[in-house]
Structure formats: C-alpha cells, structure tokens
C-alpha cells in the first residue's frame, strides 16, 4: 500500500499537467482503480496534515502538487510576480454567464448582463478561459462560447459540477435578500 502511494507521489511530482486517473492506470495497469484512489486519498491527507509546504490537489480532471497558501510570498518572490492579475468584474460576470448557459452566444450574454460584453469575451478568449465551440443554428449563425479546461484549473475546479447548483444559488440569493 505504501509503495503504491510512493509511486503515485513520484508520478505526480514529475507531471507538469494534472495527472489523470487514466494516465495512472496506464502506468499501473494491474492495480485496481479503488486501490489507486484510496492511495491518492492517503497521500493527500498525509501531505495535508504533515508540516510540509506541498499539498495534493485534485483539479482540472487530475492530481497535481501545489504549494500551501502560507508559502505564497516566498514563491511569488522567486517567480518575480508582484500579484497575480485578477479578472475584471465585467469579465468575471461574462465568464459566469458562459459557465452557466454554455454553449451560449454573445447576444445571450448581453441579454443576461444587460450590457455589451464584446470586450469581456475577447479578454476571456485571449486568456483561454473560454473558447468558441461552434455556431448556433439560428439566424446569423452566431458563434457559441463555452468554458475551457483552463477555466477549471484557474478556479481550482474539477468539473463544472462543482459550480454552485441551482438550489444553492437560490439559497445564497435568499440569504442575501433576507
């Protein structure tokens, strides 16, 4: 069991992109999936509880090591990054609209937000947080947009399922109104 955990640690360590379960199974072809998942879980809790700077994060459909938040300042200093650039409120709104209504046209987003979103969509496209997924079968054949894999990793999500659901949103809205 411990050996499997160590193998996984090595595999994740050398992977730059999140290591997917499929990739792990390719390498360890005779180990059952449940054992791998259990070992990953053990590795994760072990790293989290130990006085270590690294944690195991499941993101973008795979596993990856990340530094813990406490080590943000020195890491930033090494990378010579002052502060990570944040998305503008407008871009974030447009992105939320895309995430919930995808695939969606620019007009739909404009209808939802009530303001022109051309620039926001352009920013999101350039940042690869959304992509063009085709054209809508409607007059003018407008372009359709959807979120990318990078959207998930950027926000530390595994899948779109992790976004708050309809009921949760309603609850938040009601709390906000109360």
């Amino acid at each position: 069991m411990d050996e499997l955990k160590n193998i996984l640690e090595a595999l994740i360590f050398i992977s730059v992109e999140p290591l997917t379960l499929e990739k792990i199974k390719e390498v360890l072809n005779d180990v059952p999936e449940e054992e791998i998942l259990q070992a990953l879980l053990n590795l994760g809790t072990e790293l989290e509880s130990a006085p270590r700077a690294i944690r195991l994060v499941q993101t973008g459909g795979g596993w990856v090591f990340m530094t813990k938040p406490a080590f943000d300042p020195p890491v930033r200093k090494l990378l010579q990054i002052e502060r990570r650039k944040k998305l503008s409120p407008a871009a974030l709104e447009a992105l939320s609209a895309v995430a919930y209504h995808q695939p969606v046209t620019q007009t739909d987003i404009m209808t939802i937000r009530g303001v022109d979103s051309t620039h926001s969509l352009h920013t999101l496209l350039e940042n690869k947080l959304i992509k063009i997924s085709g054209r809508k079968d409607a007059p003018g054949r407008p372009l359709l947009y959807k979120t990318t894999e990078k959207f998930l990793t950027y926000f530390g999500l595994n899948s779109l399922e992790e976004l708050p659901r309809e009921e949760e949103l309603k609850k938040i809205l009601e709390e906000g109104n109360a």
């Binding site: 730059v16 530094t67 943000d72 990378l79 998305l87 974030l92 709104e93 939320s96 939802i112």
Partner: peptide, 29 residues
C-alpha cells in the same frame, strides 16, 4: 439570470483569490 450571474461571480472571485495564493509547477515560466 443576472442575479444568479452576480452570485456566481462572487463565488468565482473567492476561488480566484484562493487560487492566487497556491502555486503549481506550471506557474513557473
């Protein structure tokens, strides 16, 4: 829909904030 978008924006903003303090290897240029 817009109200919902605003809530989701706030949720995503929190996540962005959280993500901006943890780093993975790809972050290295």
């Amino acid at each position: 829909d817009y109200e919902r978008v605003k809530v989701v924006s706030a949720v995503l903003r929190d996540k962005e904030e959280e993500q901006s303090t943890i780093w993975r290897r790809t972050a290295l240029n």
